[in-house]
Amino acid sequence: MSPYEAILLTIITASTPLLLAAIGELVVERSGVLNLGIEGMMVMGAVCGFAAAHVTGSAWLGVLAATFAGIATSLLFGLLTQTLITNQVATGLAITLLGLGLSGLIGSGFVGLPGVKLANVSIPWLSDLPYVGRLIFGQDPLVYISIVLTVGVAYVLNNTRVGLIIRAVGQNHHSAHALGYRVVAVRYACIAFGGATSGLAGAYLSLVYTPQWIENMTAGRGWIALALVVFSTWLPERLAAGAYLFGGVWILGLYAQGMGIGIPSQLLSALPYIATILALVIISTNRRLSVINTPASLGQGFVPDR
């Protein structure tokens, strides 16, 4: 494998958790809900996925457990923001703080234990193709799932009735309610989807990226995923591009550290966070684009008249 292949491979590995978490949040936000709890859902997915895989020995059961952990955490968010109409920003923070604490508690018995790595899929012959073989046909299954999810979300949002309903609910919940759509139910479903993909993103960290449990191993990726959604102006195709760009920045920092050039390692570690801020600034200069695509009722609770 050539060095350039190796770099591209690691970039894909670094980008996939961002893409997974962000594609779910994109759907959540399109339905008019702002869930700032990605970091919390993701870290819960990571610890539950690791624990289940470690106990059962099956990485796939770990993935399943992570997904359910993400959904369960997201439904807590749904209960508060949709049923009890709490402030979505504060509730998202609560989910993050709770998730970080709870995962630490659950994971305290798993620190330093060997994990189970999700095996790569290797398509015979095709993965042996020069240059692109390993890259396109020899990834781990979650990479393919993330791509399928992205394409699926783009298709569903733009071409199906379900997508139309989600967009309608996100734009004007009063009108959607007046037409007889169950705003809260639609949003619950979207929130659960977001929880599932955040759980998957967490599983990716603890079952593929570094198959072990490390406290706070999400390291702010949930927040970067949130920034990516803003950066994408709520368009799945731009989201994917953004995620791979960010993965690239992340890996660039790691490689630069590895090569031991004279830049402080802390500066290189800070690159993804600095890049996030820069990306948000760049996208904001085209304000019209982001304003038009912004779901108009983003972050507002909905209580129907009775």
Binding site: A90, L97, L98, L102, L105
Partner: peptide
């Protein structure tokens, strides 16, 4: 970590 859990639950 229970401290963080308690704090999260409180919020």
């Amino acid at each position: 970590k229970t401290t963080q859990v308690f704090q999260g639950m409180l919020l």
